[in-house]
Nucleic acid binder design. Structure first.
Length: 484
RNA sequence: GGCGAAGUGGCCGAGUGGUCAGGCAGAGGUCUGCAAAACCUUGUACAGCGGUUCGAAUCCGCUCUUCGCCUCCA
């Protein structure tokens, strides 16, 4: 069974073959660190986290590079823009580097909580100024770029394929809808800046062959991807909104410099919308992850994201999140029940579930189907556990291995056994665990004596305290009542 | 104006030429001392209009609507 990936360049699913056997090189555009991460970041990085996990599952070594953009880029491409990181530094009355560091840490904190595995290499733009300068020099030498007044521009006319990713190959048409004033010093209106001269008072600036300045928006990705992954990389990922101009510019720069294809498979994830409109930092509707995590378990967010396909837009609403919370809790209930089950003699055939989940993932990482298979499996397992003969030790082990392989290791929506269930049972606190066990034992005694007034009182009072008790075949179990 | 997505049952959300997505919510039932859970049953879905086809929600055309990009954005 082979993996098919939807390639944005060409707009069709293609069979995946890595450039080098056994190794996948993957670059994903990272965040610009001038504010806390929001739900859009979560969707993007959860999606590519699962891509990396799946590639590893099918046997590849994955070298995953994700940059941190800590050079503040301008709010527009003309002269008038404001540097976002500098602006934030002024707002917070500190300097740009502190802003960058603060929000970088904040970003990883949130990504960690979402269970996103860290990329292998996370290079910063400021740490790779020499590499960017070297790339620009190469482009100037080959006449793909030119210097004007301390600025360096990429000459779009020198790269006939410019715009092939977004389909914006007609530059006159592109310019007809442009919303910013053109810079007259550019040879062609679509030319974009590789290096910008630092205006007076610009805080982040470096020496370059063209004077003091700072890199343009697009160069960092080309420079860092090439440095760590080579001139041709297997997978380049990012948000759809970056197709144009960012990714088209990356292609132009990289391919003009190397003469080789830059990326074999372009992957773009769709956007998060809130009540049907785009969520954006500039719009006031962005859902900040730190705020969201106060109300909703990060794992529920992860599950919510994986319930839709990465190429589909995801609409955020409280009701949708609540539905995910309940649904994921059900999966966790099944896992918990499995872990508590006493061995019987029944058998279990998992092959069809494995096959369905594997083919779903091989079909352009179809996580919604993978999740649905987990639900089907959950039902199947519950039926088996309900039977009087239960499941044999081997069958239980196979079931557990299935849920761990796909629910924990692949999708990351079922916590590992060593960690607490955050949705559902809380095993984090051993003392709480013990105390509730005592109460449940007392309740069990009361029930044996048919003292239901007492047993119900224990149950009701626990519920008031936020602990929900369920009587199962395996005995009473408890979960923390959901609070969404 | 240009480029590009998309419209699926009460809600979320897959799929795609001919038997099932899945989740949430609702209804009825089994089980249970009662709950809860679990399990069973239950939904005239595919924006509209034409066309292709033995057959279309799925392909084609048109219309309507929504969204994204063309300015930084995951």
């Amino acid at each position: 069974m082979s993996l098919f990936i939807y390639n944005s360049l060409g707009k069709r699913k293609e069979q995946f073959e890595s450039l080098y056997p056994g190794l996948v090189t993957m670059y994903v555009c990272g965040p610009t660190v001038y504010g806390h991460a929001h739900l859009g970041h979560a969707k993007s990085y959860v999606s590519f986290d699962v891509v990396a996990r799946w590639l590893r599952h099918i046997g590849f070594r994955v070298k995953y590079v994700q940059n941190i953009t800590d050079v503040g880029h301008l709010t527009d491409d003309g002269d008038e823009g404001e540097d976002k990181i500098e602006r934030q530094a002024r707002t917070e009355k500190t300097d740009p580097m502190e802003i960058a560091q603060l929000y970088t840490r904040s970003f990883y904190e949130d990504m960690d909580r979402l269970g996103i595995e860290r990329p292998n290499i996370a290079p910063t733009a400021t740490g790779h100024i020499p590499e960017q300068i070297a790339l620009i020099e190469k482009l100037i030498a080959s006449e793909h770029a030119y210097v004007v007044n301390g600025n360096v521009y990429f000459s779009v006319d020198s790269f006939p394929d410019y715009g092939k990713l977004s389909g914006r190959t007609d530059q006159d048409a592109v310019q007809s809808g442009i919303r910013v004033q053109l810079r007259s010093e550019k040879r062609s209106p679509s030319d974009f800046a590789l290096w910008k001269k630092a205006e007076a008072g610009h805080m982040m600036q470096w020496n370059s062959p063209w004077g003091r300045g700072y890199p343009g928006w697009h160069v960092e990705c080309s420079a860092m991807a090439t440095k760590y992954l080579g001139t041709t990389i297997d997978i380049h990922g990012g948000g759809m909104e970056n197709k144009f101009p960012h990714h088209d510019c990356e292609i132009a720069q990289s391919e003009a410099a190397s003469g080789k294809p830059f990326v074999r498979y372009w992957m773009h994830n769709n956007m998060v919308t809130v009540n049907g409109t785009k969520m954006g930092k500039s719009l006031k509707n962005s859902v900040n992850l730190k705020d969201l995590f106060k109300k909703v378990d990060p794992l529920v967010i992860r599950f919510f994201i994986l319930q839709s396909h990465y190429r589909s837009p995801l609409d955020y609403s409280e009701t949708a999140i609540r539905a995910s919370q309940t649904g994921l809790g059900k999966l966790h209930d099944t896992m918990r029940r499995l872990l508590q089950a006493k061995p019987g003699s029944g058998d279990l055939d998992l092959s069809s579930f494995t096959e369905r989940i594997e083919s779903a993932m091989n079909d352009d990482f179809n996580t919604p189907i993978a999740v649905s298979v987990l639900f089907d499996f959950s039902k199947f397992l519950n039926i088996a556990l309900d039977r009087t003969d239960g499941l044999s030790e081997t069958a239980l082990a196979h079931a557990k291995s299935f849920l761990v392989t796909y629910g924990t290791t692949l999708l990351g929506i079922i916590p590992p056994e060593s960690q607490p269930f955050t949705t559902g049972t809380v095993h984090a606190d051993n003392i709480l665990d013990d105390v509730i066990s005592i109460l449940l034992d007392m309740r069990a005694d009361a029930r044996i004596q048919k003292n239901f007034a007492l047993s119900d009182a224990i149950r009701d009072k626990l519920l008031e305290a936020g602990i929900e008790v369920k009587d199962t075949k395996e005995g009473a179990s408890w979960t923390r009542a959901s609070d969404v």
